[in-house]
């Protein structure tokens, strides 16, 4: 992989910088997000409620990608696959009669982790551009597999009968409760993710991105460390997928289309590739921009696409600079 140019060409850290990069700021962001659903209800703007929930869900998925991409340098172009598998876990379990979130969400996590773990055994044997292409191809494999599952709607997907219950209670039918479940899970995994990164395992994982041979010399084997991180990230993405399935009450192969993997990468990069909570900013920016542009024109991608190119050509976005993280 080409070495990333040093980050110091535009990093003149302001006094705010260290705070913006600290885990504490991540909690501030979650708190801001948590204020949105309440405000939406108070002001009678149900759309904001939906939007805040979507942001939380995609922030969770982007956060799991940021864990391996931003912190571990693993450019996965197939992160939509575990995301979609989480959604299908909810659908298939409901079909089998298990509608409780206390069953569905852990199973979704395990299914996503299993998929990423198994595909990771092959993908992680490769580097750089091979890794990008292989993660993309393996995600397409999942996509086409679910496309041909006629029992679960095939191409068209399938409607979920009802949202998951929690210990038999239909709490999640209420959109406000659901929004806070999504935000709560985001907060939980943000804290857990930061704890993991601060641990010995996390430091080795981050170190591998900086200098693999040095860690090898210290006796650390890259492969198992990366595999565990990759599987964990897949599990968390699957939880996000399970949430989205519940929010929209609909599951289709489009959940794991390769464009969604691309969207997640865009979110992570816009979030600055630095601390995990950058993913929250990235997800919010992408979703709000998409929403705004799609109000302007149905062909909003004709604007969004060049925007991405410009962001790259102009070297890292505004957000990356504000967060002080490293650009891609």
């Amino acid at each position: 992989m080409a070495t990333a140019p040093a980050a110091n060409d535009n990093a003149r850290p302001s006094r705010l910088g260290p705070f913006l990069r600290s885990p504490a700021f991540g909690l501030v962001l979650v708190a801001l997000l948590a204020a949105a659903p309440a405000a939406a209800v108070l002001l009678g703007q149900p759309f904001w409620l939906t939007m805040a929930t979507r942001v939380a869900i995609f922030a969770l998925a982007a956060l799991s990608l940021s864990f391996i991409l931003g912190q571990g340098g693993l450019v996965s172009f197939g992160h939509a696959a575990p995301f979609g598998i989480g959604a299908y876990a909810v659908l298939i379990l409901a079909d089998l009669g298990f509608t409780d979130a206390l069953v569905a969400f852990p199973v979704a996590f395990l299914a996503g982790a299993l998929f990423s773990g198994v595909t990771g055994t092959v993908a992680l044997r490769t580097r750089g551009v091979y890794f990008i292409m292989i993660t993309l191809a393996l995600a397409q494999m999942a996509f086409f597999t679910f496309t041909s599952l006629s029992a679960y709607g095939g191409d068209d997907g399938m409607t979920l009968w009802a949202r998951s219950t929690v210990a038999g209670q239909k709490w999640l039918k209420n959109d406000l409760t659901f929004a806070y479940l999504a935000i709560g899970l985001l907060a939980l995994f943000l804290v857990l993710g930061n704890r993991v990164l601060a641990s010995r395992f996390g430091r080795v994982f981050r170190g591998l991105k900086e200098n693999e041979s040095r860690l090898a010399a210290l006796g650390y084997d890259a492969y198992p460390v990366r595999l565990v991180a990759y599987a964990l990230a897949g599990g968390v993405a699957a939880v996000a997928g399970a949430l989205l399935a519940n929010q929209t009450e609909f599951v289709s192969p489009a959940y794991m289309a390769w464009q969604r993997s691309g969207d997640l990468i865009v979110m992570v990069v816009l979030g600055g590739l630095g601390p995990l909570h950058g993913a929250i900013v990235g997800a919010a920016v992408v979703l709000v921009v998409e929403e705004t542009l799609s109000h302007l024109t149905e062909h909003w991608k004709i604007i969004f696409g060049p925007l991405l190119i410009l962001i790259v050509l102009l070297r890292g976005g505004l957000i990356a600079r504000i967060l002080g993280g490293r650009r891609g």
């Binding site: 991405l308 190119i309 790259v312």
Partner: peptide, 16 residues
Amino acid sequence: RDHLEQVLATFGLILF
């Protein structure tokens, strides 16, 4: 450039 940047820009190009 970094592969990640190439991925991002060409992804934008596909959309466009």
